[in-house]
């Protein structure tokens, strides 16, 4: 089926089967590689994108469910985004595979006022896993970005 999606404020037409997951559309059709399918079961968050500003797992999101919604990937954040800056400055990454998903989750946490304490940030990172184990610095970076 042909669907129109709004990705990073750009309108794109793609032809996909309904059971195609959004992450595959982003990667294979649109060449956006920051969304990555790692677990494919909604648990790890490397495929996180913002749907109308709220984080969702694009590995489990059937593409047509995104029709009419704003999809934001890390490429769609403004150049001077505070979260991006704090992650970079604090060196809150190792391999980096999980980081775009972390950044988007953090963006939402900050936008909705739920990044006030380290405890709250750790709760909010639920479902964003980092096998390199960068949580300490990630939490610090988000705390700083929230200020």
């Amino acid at each position: 089926m042909k669907i129109t999606l709004s990705v990073n404020d750009r309108s794109v037409d793609v032809d996909v089967a309904p059971s195609t997951m959004l992450v595959d559309v982003l990667r294979d059709e649109l060449g956006i590689t920051s969304a990555r399918a790692t677990c494919g079961v909604g648990l790890c968050g490397t495929c996180t994108v913002l749907l109308d500003g709220r984080p969702v797992s694009s590995c489990l999101l059937m593409a047509p469910l995104a029709i009419g919604k704003r999809i934001t990937t890390v490429e769609g954040l403004p150049d001077d985004d505070a979260v991006v800056r704090c992650f970079s400055e604090r060196h809150a990454f190792q391999c980096g595979f999980c980081i775009p998903g972390m950044v988007l989750t953090a963006r939402d946490m900050i936008d909705t006022g739920r990044a006030n304490t380290p405890e709250e940030i750790r709760e909010g990172l639920g479902g964003n896993l980092c096998r390199c184990g960068c949580y300490v610095k990630i939490v610090d970076a988000i705390e700083e970005a929230a200020r």
Binding site: S19, M21, V41, G42, C59, L60, M62, P64, L65
Partner: peptide, 24 residues
């Protein structure tokens, strides 16, 4: 029937479900 699609996404990915008709 597709609601949030989180459970469906999982079973589709695992190849346990494919359907010709979807009602969102």
């Amino acid at each position: 029937v597709v609601a949030g699609g989180t459970f469906l996404g999982l079973v589709i990915r695992q190849g346990l479900l494919d359907s010709d008709e979807w009602i969102s």
